[in-house]
Design a protein around this nucleic acid. Structure first.
Length: 274
DNA sequence: AAGTCTTGCAACCGCCTTTCC
DNA sequence: GGGAAAGGCGGTTGCAAGACT
């Protein structure tokens, strides 16, 4: 059953799933007229769909070059990192993942990592998935002889330790700083203290106060500049499966250049403020 | 085996921005 | 310059299929 909508004297657009016939009509229209002028699609093709609906269908499903199937661990890592810096800027994130749409990334994030609508615990399945991603990433690292990002995770752990120390805090038993760092503290570089908190393993969330103070505009801009300074050609060019090294270069560039900012954020954190 | 939960995906909605006249 | 239309974006919903209990 496909719904239609009638608003006063407005046209009743068809809604719901697209049929093969409709896809064909839309594809033909775009091949003739190019993308854009979506509101003209109905007039030229007889398609009873709104311009918005046509655009969405084209961009998310029909457009050539779209990748289908699951995200690779590298793509997932890139999403982690850029999301950590920019937040829910799905269209921006999508620009760094050729063949992936903002809608796809948004769906992925919501399914796996949006904790808002799930109480405080991640499910066993999510845990499994996280483990699987970690395992795949490790395998990729070994295959590519990539130095593991131990430094990065160590840096974060040591920052946490140092920070606790500087505030005369003692990290007690359930905080495993420095051990099995990659497994235990799997979380991406983040830009704001809010994000930092959200990415902390739950044991850390229990330990650290929330919410974290926001970063300053200058700090955020610093992170953005870092991202925008990436070689655009390189970023847009990495589409295939054998582009891991390019992805890795981007990964390292983003990660490395953010250390200082992250460190600053932590120093600014009003740790255990009463 | 059946009920419940999770995941993956498609699509719509409303708001904001940009473009056009 | 201002209003209308179009486009873009993020949030949200709904559903089917598979996994889990």
């Amino acid at each position: 059953m496909v719904a239609t909508v009638m608003m006063g004297s407005e046209k009743a657009w068809k809604k719901g799933p697209w049929t093969l016939e409709e896809d064909k009509l839309l594809s033909e229209y775009v091949s003739l007229h190019g993308e854009g002028r979506w509101s003209s699609v109905a007039k030229f093709t007889g398609l009873n769909r709104s311009g918005k609906s046509c655009r969405l269908r084209w961009v998310n499903y029909l457009k050539p070059g779209l990748k289908k199937g699951h995200l690779t661990p590298q793509e997932e890592a890139i999403i982690f990192e850029i999301h950590a810096m920019l937040g829910n800027k799905w269209s921006t994130i999508a620009k760094y993942l050729p063949g992936r749409t903002d809608n796809e990334i948004k769906n992925y994030w919501r399914t796996h990592f949006n904790k808002k609508d799930k109480s405080s615990r991640i499910s066993k399945r999510q845990e499994k998935r996280r483990s699987r991603i970690l395992k795949q990433m490790k395998q990729q690292e070994q295959q590519q002889q990539r130095p593991p990002p131990q430094q990065y995770y160590d840096v974060q752990s040591s920052m946490l330790s140092a920070h606790a120390e500087s505030n005369n805090q003692i990290i007690t038993s359930n905080v495993s700083v420095g051990t099995n760092v990659l497994e235990d503290n799997f979380h991406p570089v983040v830009a704001t203290m809010e994000d930092q908190y959200n990415y902390l393993p739950f044991m850390f969330q229990d330990y650290f106060p929330s919410p974290w103070p926001e970063t300053t505009v200058e700090q955020d801009e610093g992170l953005l500049v870092t991202l925008w300074n990436l070689d655009e050609e390189t970023v847009q060019g990495h589409g295939g499966d054998n582009k891991f090294n390019e992805n890795n270069a981007i990964h390292n560039q983003i990660t490395t250049s953010c250390f200082d900012d992250i460190s600053n954020n932590l120093c600014l954190a009003k740790y255990m403020s009463g």
